[in-house]
Amino acid sequence: MSEQLLRLDHITMQFGGVVAVDDLELVVNEGEIVALIGPNGAGKTTAFNVITGVYQPTNGAVWFDGAKIIENHPQGKMKKQYKGQCDGLYTETLSPTPDKITRAGMARTFQNIRLWKTQTVFDNVLIAKHCRSTSSVFSAAFRLNRKEEAAQRAQVEELLEIVGLSDVKNELATSLPYGKQRRLEIARALAAEPKLLLLDEPAAGMNPQETEELTAFIGEIREKFKITILLIEHHMNLVMGISDRIYVLDFGKLIAHGTPAEIQKNQRVIDAYLGVADDA
């Protein structure tokens, strides 16, 4: 049986009186592709922001690669405002910054493409590679890190070849077609050498052909990089075609979890999110 790579224990994220994520428990095993789906506003991106250190959860803990990396509990005014569960279960406060979580082995993309607009395709990926640099500011300033820099540039060349962007490496990132910009954003995340890749609506804005190509691309990423993937997505053909397991959120609460076949038959998920096709 595969080992757990990521585990969320009773994660609650409350903003004032609004509970965006409510007592979420989720597991991603090594080598899996797991999808997190649900209607707009269900709390999916909020959950991603907790996992990656953008938000500190109001309550709960996150385990990654065998270690607890995040923990929090209601404090201050939130002690009275807290509407979630398990408020007495956690006592520590662990709140690493996103850069530390990236170095621990996570990388993510965003709903809205966030490429460096004035940089080339190559430089977008190279800059992301710097999170793995071992050189100091001093050694970089005096070019004492030439060997490491040369190795990183070679790794970027290889990565762009693998993801099919080597032919546009010298073009500005924003000059690429939309589908290739999405691919570049994923390549930039891969440059951080993650164990877990989090994709936030990677098919957003894509036409059916681009979505089909992306579905195949995500599958290739798992095989070529031996990587684990957690994704948020609204394109059900992509989700059902590539996911090993699926979690479904509705109004911040987990309403279902299972294989694609199980989720498609789950009446609660159909009512809340999937719907049914009209009779012809």
Rank of each mutant, 00 (worst) to 15 (best):
G16E: 12
L5W: 04
E193G: 03
P202Q: 01
A140M: 14
K226T: 09
A140R: 13
V239C: 04
L197W: 12
F48W: 01
W116P: 14
C86T: 15
M240S: 00
E220G: 11
Y247K: 07
L199H: 06
H130D: 14
Q81C: 14
L165Y: 14
L26H: 03
I33T: 09
L94V: 12
A173E: 05
E25I: 13
T97W: 13
F217T: 07
V54K: 04
K226M: 06
Q181T: 10
A280F: 13
F64L: 10
R146E: 15
L230C: 03
D167G: 07
K265S: 14
V239A: 01
Q111A: 03
V28W: 02
T97N: 14
L249V: 02
G31Y: 09
Q14C: 07
L214F: 04
K77L: 08
V239L: 04
T91R: 15
I221T: 02
D271L: 03
G179T: 05
R132D: 09
R183D: 02
G66L: 05
A256Q: 08
L230E: 09
V137K: 11
T12E: 02
N49C: 05
G275W: 08
F251I: 11
A261I: 15
Q209V: 13
A67E: 15
R222Q: 08
E30H: 13
D244E: 04
M106V: 12
I221M: 10
I70V: 11
Q75K: 07
G60M: 05
N124D: 10
T45V: 02
R103E: 07
L197D: 13
N237A: 12
L24N: 00
Q181R: 10
I186H: 06
W116R: 14
T109S: 03
H235C: 10
E3T: 13
V156R: 04
L214P: 00
A192G: 03
M1A: 07
M236W: 10
G219H: 08
S175V: 11
F110R: 10
T46M: 04
D65Y: 01
G43N: 02
N124T: 10
L172K: 11
K253P: 05
S139W: 13
N112L: 06
A272T: 13
I51A: 02
G88S: 11
A272S: 12
L197S: 10
P208I: 01
L254S: 14
G31D: 13
M206P: 05
E149W: 13
G84L: 11
T120K: 00
C86R: 15
A151P: 13
N72M: 04
F64Y: 07
I113V: 02
I218M: 11
Q81H: 15
L115R: 06
V121Y: 04
T211W: 01
A128V: 00
V18K: 10
R7G: 05
S95I: 11
G60V: 06
T12N: 06
E213Y: 09
Q119Y: 07
V121C: 01
S2Y: 00
L274K: 09
N59Q: 12
A42Q: 07
V248E: 06
T58A: 01
T215Y: 03
R114N: 03
Y178F: 07
F217H: 07
N59H: 08
